[in-house]
Design a binder for these strands. Structure first.
Lengths: 236, 236
DNA sequence: CTTGTGGCTTGATATTTATCAATGTAGAAG
DNA sequence: CTTCTACATTGATAAATATCAAGCCACAAG
């Protein structure tokens, strides 16, 4: 039995770049087969290797994308409202490459992948939006690869902090949006080394109190971090 | 003065997934503004950060995509005929994230980015092909990230060798397609460590004579490498 | 308040990887 | 055939990073 999606969720979803410009009839057709569900924290939403039956949209809360191999695990990304994830698998009708779990209590919309592919075939604006989104995702992962291969862990951390600072409108003090163990994994290091890396940034004016970061001398930190738009800019 | 593209190159280019299904008139319109050029080895074709004026297609030879930061350089991928590169930058009209140089004497087709975007807007099949290609590229980079973050250098090398073996139709002996220094950079290690890594794989039946690799016991190497379709399969 | 619990930090140590310096080697040019 | 050059290899060492083992701290449950 199919419940469908509450109309109260429509505006949030319509606000997504991916769906903003598409034909209203198509939009409604897409959501007709969809549903919305609330999940507690630490729930596995998808498992890498599974067939991609649904395009997922985070409406509230947050979701971690991660991968496993040979008993090891690494955090790939954190998805925050309002955005989709696993678009590429949906489009290609290929297995998920990453697993996903809720980090906190989250509200997730699920759109059947076959509906996405069907509407994609008949709605040019939707197709264009998908292309834009995929190109964006691709470029993000390329930047991440450059970050990993060209920088030491200390350099990755300092550039991460500068990016977060920018997100907080350049405030000298801000909160880390994820726990440190996940940040460590995302940055490709152990929690122990993240601790030591924070200490290693003290000489450049980085102060840490729990989850709160204070950057006392941004110029100094930038001189060390050498941020580059071709790695650290989210926009382009 | 504009020379255009020799019609003799059309069949090769038409064979590309990206262009195979598109309308013939659009195909010709796309190529009308394009041209083909022969380059000697080691020529810089594009520089990261530059505006993306052309979609590039490798017709023969090979091209390395690489990136620099803070005096360091890393090899990101090798492009072989017949394929495109920097599609995402073209679509987004955003700066290149990677530089490109010829590895050998190469024949390259250049299609003005604005033409690609214009035809994309009017040709649904072309749009669909672009989506498929971008999704493929995205998934490749995600796999690469997993390879880098979840595996040691020895594991990366052994899985790389198994992938190359598969490309050589499973032959016990095959040639490395790129020089070792580039392979090292691609795998995220130094040339010195690649040498040592090859030695470290001797106990698993890997023999090296110059560029020729021999895998005497594939099962044994696989037991060590633990290849996964979610990292090592090119298809999905 | 007490007691867990889970995450964070710290120090000691081991492993992995990079760097530096020297030598070997194969192919191209003369 | 030599000589040159660029790449590859090797060994010694240094640096970066991971692992292991405590201990610490904040917060939630009893």
């Amino acid at each position: 039995m199919h419940i469908g999606m509450p109309e109260s969720d429509y505006p949030d979803i319509r606000g997504l770049h991916l769906l903003a410009d598409m034909n209203e009839a198509h939009f409604r057709a897409l959501l007709r087969g969809s549903y919305v569900q609330n999940f507690p924290p630490q729930i596995d939403l998808i498992e890498e290797g599974d067939p991609s039956d649904f395009l997922h949209i985070v409406l509230s809360g947050s979701v971690e994308l991660y991968s496993r191999w040979n008993g090891r695990e690494t955090s790939m990304a954190t998805v925050r409202p309002v955005s989709t994830f696993i678009l590429a698998a949906t489009i290609k009708d290929a297995p998920y490459l990453m697993s996903a779990r809720t980090l906190e209590k989250s509200r997730i919309a699920l759109i059947p992948s076959q509906d996405v592919r069907a509407i994609f075939d008949v709605d040019g604006k939707f197709a264009r939006a998908i292309v834009a989104e995929l190109a964006q995702c691709y470029r993000s992962v390329v930047k991440n690869t450059k970050d990993l291969k060209l920088r030491t862990s200390l350099e990755r951390l300092s550039n991460y902090l500068l990016r977060q600072q920018k997100r907080s409108d350049g405030a000298a003090s801000f909160e880390l949006p994820i726990e440190k163990r996940r940040l460590a994994s995302f940055l490709g290091m152990t929690p122990e080394n993240l601790s030591r890396a924070f200490k290693g940034l003290q000489p450049y004016g980085v102060k840490v109190h729990g989850n709160r970061i204070e950057i006392t001398d941004q110029r100094d930190l930038e001189r060390f971090a050498r941020p580059s738009p071709l790695i650290d800019d989210f926009k382009t």
